[in-house]
Every structure is written in structure tokens, then in C-alpha cells.
Amino acid sequence: MSGTNAAAGGANAAAGGAFTDAVIRRNPAWIQLLGLCPLLAVSNSLVNAIGLALASGFVMLGSALAISALRTWIPSRVRLPCFVLVIATFTTLSVLLLEAYAFELYLRIALFVQIIVSNCMILGRMEAFASRQPPWRACLDALGTATGFAIALVALGGVREALGQGSLLAGMEHLFGPIAAGWRIDLGFDTAPFLIALLPPGAFIIAGLLLGLANSLGNALPSNRNNDEQGKTNPDIRKAEG
């Protein structure tokens, strides 16, 4: 958060900092464990993961822009209901867009596109950032948070699809049209695919293993040792050690 409140002087550097901060050190899914429901539910293939990442990014960006532009008109006492209604409006728009242009894909992830509205990650960013900053900064932060969420979705989706189906990018034509039909990569495993990766238990277990891996990589980085953002995991670690 340090970069986000900096004076307008080094605005560009600070804005860049806000973006990388939102993508990596405050990664909504891995560090803050927000938006877990869609993350685990639709990550059984890359196409589902990318579809939901795009829909969430659209809602995030649209709501941040709208809320930031309207921030002086929204009375602070009823701000949360207002934010929720704005987010619900953009969620409805993304549902209608997916129904119109990617119906096959929509049928597979319908419920989780609709509940983007109750994703606490989005409401949290609106309350903490977009409602207090000018539109361009709010957009940058929204873009960063959405990218961070997309990276988490794609990482989990890629691992689960590779283990469970032995392929990558299968079925991309449902999202990008007939051009994408040839994007499927067959990994050519000799053995049968590891079916459990596609089932619900696989989502939890692989997410836990990936998070553990990310933690051990994060702990190895010197810059993250004394980092505030790690404060959420550190007490647990200390407790486990003590």
C-alpha cells in the first residue's frame, strides 16, 4: 500500500508500484485468500479459468471506473449498498455479453459468473481504493488486482487441466471462436490422466500445494522477509513453531 498514497510528484512511479503491488505482493487470491470460490470452482480447465478471469476483470474495471467517477456523489452512509448495486450492474452486463458471444462457455461457468457480485475481493477494492482515488488510479489498481486474480486462476487451471486431461488450452474455441480450435496442446502422457485433479478434492489439494510452494518461494525472497503483507501468514507460522 505504500506506493498508493504517495504524493502526485512521482505519480508514474507510484502508479507502477501500485500495479505490481496489486499483482504480486497483495495478490488477491494467493496472499489474501479472497475470491476462493470461483478460483477453485472454475479452474478445472484453462478455458474456464480464462473466461472467468476476463469476466471478473471486466466487472472489476467497470465498477472501479464508475465508483471512482461517482465518488463525490455517493453519500458515505449508504456507500456499501451503492457499491454492491454498481458491481451487480456490471455483473449483469458481463452475463449478457457472455450469453451473446460465448454461450457454450457461459453454460459451463454460469453460476460463478453470476456470483462475481458477491466476490469480496471486488467489494474490498472498491471500499479501500476506488472510492477514494481519481478514476485513472482506480483503473490501474483494478487492472492490477484483476491481473493478480487472473494469474492465480490460470496457474491453478493450467496445473489441473494438465494433470486431469493431459492437455492444455483445450476447447479455447468456446471463448475465442473457431480460430482457437487448433490451440490445444497435447502433453502426450503415457499413463491415464490423473482424474482427481478435475474433481473437487483435486481443486482443494492442488490449491493448497501451490499456495505452499508460493509461500516457500516468497519466504526465500529477501525483499519479502519483513513485509507487512506477509503479516497475515506470519502469526500462523509463529504459532506453529512455538
Partner: peptide
């Protein structure tokens, strides 16, 4: 529990949830 540092907290909780989910299957 005596866990590897990196798995304390959320990661082991997710793996635990996975095992419960396996049971519910």
C-alpha cells in the same frame, strides 16, 4: 501439528479441505 513452515495456515487448511471433500465424494 509440526508442519513445514511454508504449509502452516492456509495451505494445510486447503489440503485438509481436499481430504474432507474426497470423503464427501
Amino acid at each position: 501439528a509440526d508442519l513445514p513452515r511454508a504449509f502452516a495456515g492456509a495451505p494445510i487448511a486447503l489440503v485438509t479441505a481436499g481430504l474432507m471433500s474426497l470423503g464427501f465424494l
